[in-house]
Design a protein around this nucleic acid. Structure first.
Lengths: 209, 209
DNA sequence: GGATTAATCACCCTAATAGGGTGACTATTA
DNA sequence: TAATAGTCACCCTATTAGGGTGATTAATCC
C-alpha cells in the first residue's frame, strides 16, 4: 500500500485552516501533517515535516504567499505548492505560477475538487479553477484585429527578440532597407518612435507574444 | 428552458467523428448540428450552421486544425473552439491557444469530461486535460537556478523590452556605466556577446519571462 | 578572516545602429 | 481605381552597443 500524501496548510484564517485540515485529513490516503498561520511561522519546522503538498494562501501576515513560494521551493525542492486563495487578479496568478506554484485554486472550490487537486499536483499535474484556467488560456491568445500585417508582426517579433535591423534582414532574406521600411510602417501604425515603445505597446495589446 | 448547445465536430477519422457525435448528441442540452471530415469541407456550410462550440482535431487533411482556428474565428466570432487531439507537443498546444482555441483536450479524455468541457467553453471557461494543464503551468515557471543575480535578471528583462542602456539607467535610477557593467556581467555569465543572443538564451532557459 | 559575489561607477575606444525624411516599383485585393 | 502589402534606394546625424580594464563598498560564505 502506498503511503498517504503528506499535506501542510499555510493559511492565516484559523477557521478556514482548521476546516481544510479536518476535511482533508479524514480522506484516506491524505494526511495533514501540520498547519501554520503564516510562512514566517512555518519556516521553523516545515523542512522537518517534509510535506508532499503545501496548500498556500496568498494573503498572509508577514511574508506574502507569493514571496513565500520560491523560499519554500528552495527549502523543499520536491514539494508541490497549491495556491488556495480568494484572489483572482491576473497579476497575482501569473506571479504565483512564475514563482513555482504547481496549481491555483480559488476558495469557492468544492471540497472534492480540492482533494482531487492535491492528488493531481502530487502526480505532477497542474490543477486550476475554471476561472483561473480561463485567464491562463486567455493570456496566450493574440489579438485577432491587429493593425499590423503578417510581415510587420513577424519583424516586430524579431525586434522584441533583440535583433538588429541587419540581423533581421539576414534572417528573412530581404534587404536592410526593406526591414527599415517595415519598421517605419510599424512605428507609424502604432504611433511610436522607438523599439521599446513599439514592443511595450504590442505586448500590451497582444499583437505579439 | 434554455436552448441546447449547438455543436460541430471537425475530425477526419469517421469512426471517432461519429462516435463523438452519437455520444454528445444523446445528452440533453447538447445538439450536434453537423460533422465534417476537414476544415475545407466545413467552410461551405459552417457559417449557416452557426455552432456555439466547435470540436476541432489538429491533424486534418488539407488545412491543418491550427491554421483553421483563426479562419473559423473570423467566420464565427462568437463560436468557441475546443481542440480534441492526440497531440501533446508543447509547440502545437501553444500555437492552438495563441490562435484562439478556448480549450485543449487529448483524446483519451473520458466522455463525461468532454461533455463537461463543451459546457465550460460555452460559458467562457478554459478546459484542459490534466497533462495539458501541467504543460501550460510549466510554461509560466522560471528557472529557479538562474546564474544571474536579481539585478542582472531585471536588467536583462528591460533589454528584452527593447530599452537602450540609457533608458534602463534612467528607469532604475543608476548610472549608465553601472548598466553597462551589469550587461557585461550578463554576457559573461551567459557566454554571449549581443542582446539578441542573451535574450534568446535567457528565454530558452526561462531565466526571464 | 579571507574569498567570493553583488552592485555601484569611471574612462578608454570604434564600428554599427537607430531613427527621420522622401520616394519608387510591383502585386494583390477591395 | 484606390488602398494595402512587400520590396528596395539614398539622404542625414546623434546615439548606441560592445570590448577593454579598472575601482569601491557591502554582503555573504566557508
Amino acid at each position: 500500500m502506498e503511503r498517504s500524501i503528506r499535506i501542510v496548510i499555510i493559511e492565516d484564517d484559523e477557521i478556514i485552516r482548521e476546516g481544510y485540515a479536518l476535511l482533508i485529513g479524514q480522506v484516506e490516503g491524505y494526511q495533514v501533517v501540520n498547519t501554520y498561520s503564516s510562512f514566517d511561522d512555518a519556516v521553523k519546522s516545515i523542512v522537518d515535516v517534509a510535506p508532499d503538498v503545501i496548500l498556500l494562501d496568498i494573503e498572509l501576515p508577514g511574508t506574502s504567499g507569493i514571496a513565500a513560494i520560491p523560499k519554500l521551493k528552495r527549502m523543499l525542492p520536491n514539494a508541490h505548492i497549491l495556491i488556495l486563495t480568494v484572489y483572482e487578479s491576473e497579476k497575482l496568478i501569473f506571479e504565483a505560477l512564475a514563482n513555482g506554484a504547481s496549481g491555483y485554486l480559488t476558495k469557492n472550490t468544492p471540497a472534492a475538487k480540492i482533494i482531487e487537486s492535491v492528488k493531481e499536483v502530487k502526480d505532477g499535474g497542474g490543477p486550476m479553477s475554471v476561472n483561473i484556467a480561463r485567464m491562463v488560456i486567455k493570456s496566450f491568445q493574440r489579438n485577432q484585429e491587429s493593425p499590423l500585417s503578417k510581415r510587420e508582426t513577424q519583424i516586430l517579433e524579431q525586434i522584441a527578440d533583440g535583433k538588429s535591423r541587419s540581423q533581421i534582414a539576414k534572417d528573412l532574406f530581404i534587404d536592410l532597407e526593406t526591414v527599415r521600411s517595415h519598421i517605419k510602417n510599424i512605428y507609424l501604425k502604432l504611433d511610436v518612435n522607438s523599439r521599446a515603445d513599439a514592443i511595450r505597446l504590442a505586448k500590451e495589446n497582444k499583437l505579439i507574444k
